[in-house]
Design a protein around this nucleic acid. Sequence first.
RNA 1: GCACGAGUGGCGAAACUGGUAGACGCAGCGGACUUAAAAUCCGCAGGUCCUUUGGUGGACCGUAUGGGUUCGAGCCCCAUCUCGUGCACCA
Length: 847
Amino acid sequence: MSRYDPSVIEPKWQNEWEAKKPFKTPTDLAELKKKPKFYVLDMFPYPSGAGLHVGHPEGYTATDVVARLKRMQGFNVLHPMGWDAFGLPAERAAMRDGIHPAVITKRNVDNFRRQIKRLGFSYDWDREVDTSAADYYRWTQWIFLKLYEKGLAYLAEVPVNWCPALGTVLANEEVKDGKYVETGDPVERRLMKQWMLKITAYGDRLLEDLDGLDWPDGIKEMQRNWIGKSEGAEVTFKVEGSSEAFVVFTTRPDTLFGATYCVLAPEHTLVSKITTAAQQAKVDAYVLEAKNKSELARKEDAKTKTGVFTGAHAVNPATGKPVPIWIADYVLAGYGTGAIMSVPAHDTRDHEFAKAFGLPIVEVVKGGKDVQAEAFVDEGVAVNSGLLDGLATGEAKKKMTAWLEEQRLGKKRVQYQLRDWLFSRQRYWGEPFPIVHCEDGSIATIPEAQLPVELPHVDEYKPTADGRPPLARAGDPWLGVTLPNGKKGVREVNTMPQWAGSCWYYLRFLDAKNDQQAWNPELEKYWMPVDLYVGGVEHAVLHLLYARFWHKVLFDCGLVSTKEPFQKLFNQGMILAYSYRSEAGKYYHPKDVDDRDDGAVVKATGEKLHKQVEKMSKSKSNVVSPDEVIEEHGADAMRLYELFMGPLEQVKPWQMSGVAGVARFLDRVWRLVVNEETGALSAKLTDAGPESEPDLHKALHKCIQAVEKDTLGLRFNTGISHMMTFANEATGAKTLPKAIARTFMTVLAPYAPHLAEELWSRLGGEGFVSIAPWPKFDPALVVENTITYAVQVLGKLRAEIQAPIDATEAEVRALAEAEPKMKPWLEGKTVKKFVFVPKRLVNFVVG
RNA sequence: GCACGAGUGGCGAAACUGGUAGACGCAGCGGACUUAAAAUCCGCAGGUCCUUUGGUGGACCGUAUGGGUUCGAGCCCCAUCUCGUGCACCA
């Protein structure tokens, strides 16, 4: 073989790695403790039937490059991969095709594994996990028992998001605008008895501990918003002429004097009790209308405020005056107390409502705006507010809250938007709960020693005729059980949501084969926390919040040693692709398109096409599969291009011609070492020391330094550009000392490991270059001894001069003034100021 | 509507802490090699204009737009526009 042929060398080295396991992470603790650790984790995929597209391996390639570099730098690196294998698509496919979801899942996993392995990632495959395997979900159930024991898992009759199309409930997080976010199927509200996890008990810690994490600010902010902590007060309003009272929540207790009416949510229990006979008909109609309005319609109507007067009045506890009580759907039953005090002068929504219904607007915070025309919502100085007058908003809040507490009319309160986590699903393909509902109405847990509660076989994967979840089809002996204490009962037939398995998989990787424990505590102490976690921004809230919650519970149980699981998080940007659409809206596959400078046309017909960048999707004919890229250019080129496209965090379009570009670079590296005609080593290679090519030697060390720095800083695109620069210089050099070539292979190895291994072995390198020590750059070789100074006049570049690295300001100035090009710019001018930036530039400020 | 992020050549992008804008690559152009093409190697390449027989040399403009701070701004400040993402009646 003489040409660079990835289809030959890539399988060759993958087989070598598979056989000799250079990437196996030690499992022995004493062995591990000899070296520092680095845990670099990918968000493991859900193995869908469609296989990988080129977006998946972007993050995997990034972590693999870091893992390989760290390994070469002498770290024990934990770099595992697994499958988030429970989930709805497999269950749907099972229903459609009548095949067990486990079979479908295995098929998909096998395909994913095959595709991932083709890219030459240095995973320790001995630690592969599958959340749908009984020896994995056994421990998921075990963690559920921990939650249950701590009182963090409970059954509750709650209004849930029921999705008729799927026949299951969904978490709040899975519903947006009244639709299931994944499929767009409509969702309705229903009351059902469900398992809930008390994530709200951890709201404060989930919020506070964000501060210590090295995460993108945007993600932290999204989590903060999701938790939605707001501090304020609750205030009791008495209903005039009745013994009834209701409580409102407000973040602005300082504006109580300006509360000119109150609003209850239409669902508020008090509505039926206080409505006057005269208003009854109108109120009933409004409540009915609100009830039937879909989530979507309610959002649509958000601009126009609607509402009805109940006829009743409440007493403003500050002013003692009666204020009307209205009902309106802009007050949400599910947040706070489902009732508000309205301060139209200082709240936009209340202002709109007051304007619409002619309710009084009273200014209580001075802000220089006309509150009759527009609400003033900022902080200011209290007015028309009795005891608060003259106080700044912050002070006024405190004073009012204290006063309310004194009068027993209210108290300080912290409110979260975060809700408890709805944790059961009416599905088959998920973890069964280790729970038995006893005949006497009590709930029993399955003892740890008897876990796992395995998924039973069922005849069909849909709900029973009477609407119970698929597990109810299992029948006895699975369904009905007799407990050791003789009690009889029925197993829980809900299953856990897909998020459960991914809440702790990073812990199972530490000790994946352990059949006695979920993980060994000593190994946990050694490896945790995760040092680098890379994945898509789509998991910013849900997965990351749930996993943090479980981790904190495990921490409180003494089962993990860190407060947080993921110390550093990085989100890769989505990879998009160009798509070609005709006037009529038909999409064409790139292979049928001629993309010329003057526009894209259909090859066959010459029809003009619109070219745009869009998300990859089958319907747009713009999906690129790693398989096709590897077949054309090889896995190393694929890896390199994934990272060379641009910054990892950025959204960017895939361009096949770009892959060809990096492939060309690899080809060039190949030719540095191999004579393509003969297959022998290139005639340029010499056995002389690296000093025999001083310029190239310097270039090499600059390259080592830059690649190391950029890789660890996750700036892979510039790292690769430095390797290209070196290869270009090496191509231009007269000779190439083998020592330099070998060292360059170690630098290349994390990025293009197959090629590096092949050339390393041809150059006589020992063992695998993938685990060879990372080279140390020589600081003396990376500094220049002459510097090019930019010479500016009034900030504009007028000349360039060369000066020794250690030249003083006066010396550089003298050189600049002596430069002939500078003559016309300086002649006859007075230099008012001279700016000297060492090693960069000088600037003459002339008058 | 609110919050955050981003706007740099034909394209993907680089530019450290305010210091020579466009590294590296794609596409393009020219040359060498070749019967020819591909591949490869060498070179050119932001725009406008001027200059030179020619190689060249030079001026001005240029990082979404308009202002500002500074000896000097892609980077800092103010305002505006566009795009993206998230949240969205959360009291």
